[in-house]
């Protein structure tokens, strides 16, 4: 089937999509957007997190056909040209990226948190990131990055 979807503000379409395919597969393999990562394909790790109609979801659990005529925003759509989003900048500066596999999902989840709650306390940050696993950093640097991003955005 063909799927028409707006991705990062641009009308896109993918052909020959298998009906049981996930949004994650469409993004990575058909639309050339490898930002969202495929790690578990079962909703456990959050590394495939993208916005669907402005709500963060696991792209691996959305059927391709469910995004017809809807809007997706991936980690590739957060930066403004060459200028990184404050959340992305903070991840770099705080050393919250090691292997980087979890980073795109965490960046989208943190981005969403700061839109809803510009200066979150620690329990709020932990709750917002509870669906994202990182096997490298031990999370402390990630929490630092979110606090830093909140400060940057507030500045």
């Amino acid at each position: 089937m063909r799927v028409n979807v707006t991705v990062n503000g641009e009308a896109r379409s993918a052909d020959d999509v298998w009906e049981g395919e996930s949004l994650l597969y469409v993004l990575r393999e058909r639309l050339g957007l490898p930002g969202a990562k495929n790690a578990c394909e079962q909703g456990e790790c959050g590394s495939c997190t993208v916005y669907l109609d402005d709500v963060p979801v696991c792209a691996c659990l959305v059927a391709a056909g469910q995004v017809q005529d809807r809007e997706v925003r991936t980690v590739e759509g957060l930066a403004d040209g060459e200028t990184l989003d404050p959340v992305q900048e903070a991840f770099v500066q705080a050393g919250a990226v090691q292997c980087g596999f979890c980073t795109p999902g965490l960046v989208v989840a943190a981005h969403d948190l700061l839109r809803r709650s510009p200066s979150p306390d620690d329990p709020e940050i932990r709750e917002a990131l509870a669906g994202n696993l990182c096997r490298c950093t031990g999370y402390e640097k990630i929490l630092d990055a979110v606090r830093l991003a909140a400060a940057k955005r507030g500045a």
Binding site: G20, E41, A63
Partner: peptide
């Protein structure tokens, strides 16, 4: 039927289920 897909898609991704069709409720 598929709503949020948080159960159905896991089954599809892991080939535990190959239904003849999906009925999207969203």
């Amino acid at each position: 039927p598929i709503a949020g897909g948080t159960d159905v898609m896991v089954e599809l991704n892991f080939d535990h289920r190959r239904p003849p069709g999906l009925l999207d409720l969203t």
